[in-house]
């Protein structure tokens, strides 16, 4: 019961903040609301017994991505906040298509019978994640470290001012 109440409270906050991010006219406000949205997602992870993923969500997204986004806004012009609105036709088409997509997905989810397992979730997700990173997922783990290094160097090179 208490889980359902928490779920609905978090879901309401998440959906409202997501809509606020997408429709916001001010980029700075949008990034700040996105930070709140990411925190509610972390709350969902805690509710799903995935504490390590939740902590990483707070570290990587709220601590890292939001700060990078703020730098991105500060370095781009303020008149960029005023976006020319999409045409009414375009808006209407997008809303209808997305509503149809959500409806279709919801119908599929409700009609499918998922084979859920009654087993207890793992208590110590940190040590389990550490073990899995070094055994089953060692190749993707190494590849992702190379990818992060490449992205870091690439971002610096692309964003650097060219010297003539």
């Amino acid at each position: 019961m208490i889980e359902q109440v928490i779920f609905f409270a978090l879901a309401a906050v998440a959906i409202i903040s997501a809509i606020a991010v997408v429709l916001s006219r001010n980029l700075f406000h949008a990034v700040m609301i996105l930070g709140g949205f990411l925190l509610t997602i972390a709350g969902f992870y805690f509710l799903l017994n995935a504490d390590f993923v939740g902590i990483m969500q707070v570290f990587v997204y709220v601590g890292g991505v939001i700060v990078v986004m703020l730098f991105g806004i500060m370095l781009t012009p303020h008149e960029a906040n005023i976006t020319n609105a999409a045409k009414l036709q375009q808006k209407l088409g997008t809303y209808i298509a997305v509503a149809a997509l959500i409806g279709l997905l919801a119908m599929i989810f409700i009609r499918t019978t998922f084979i859920t397992s009654p087993a207890e979730p793992v208590k110590d997700t940190v040590s389990l994640a550490g073990k899995l990173f070094m055994t089953n997922y060692v190749l993707p783990f190494e590849v992702i470290s190379v990818l992060l290094l490449a992205a870091l160097v690439g971002a610096i090179i692309v964003a650097r001012k060219e010297e003539h």
Binding site: V65, I144, G154
Partner: peptide, 11 residues
């Protein structure tokens, strides 16, 4: 991957 994507995208 998303963190890398944000860094490169903003650059």
């Amino acid at each position: 991957v998303a963190a890398a994507e944000v860094a490169v995208g903003l650059a």
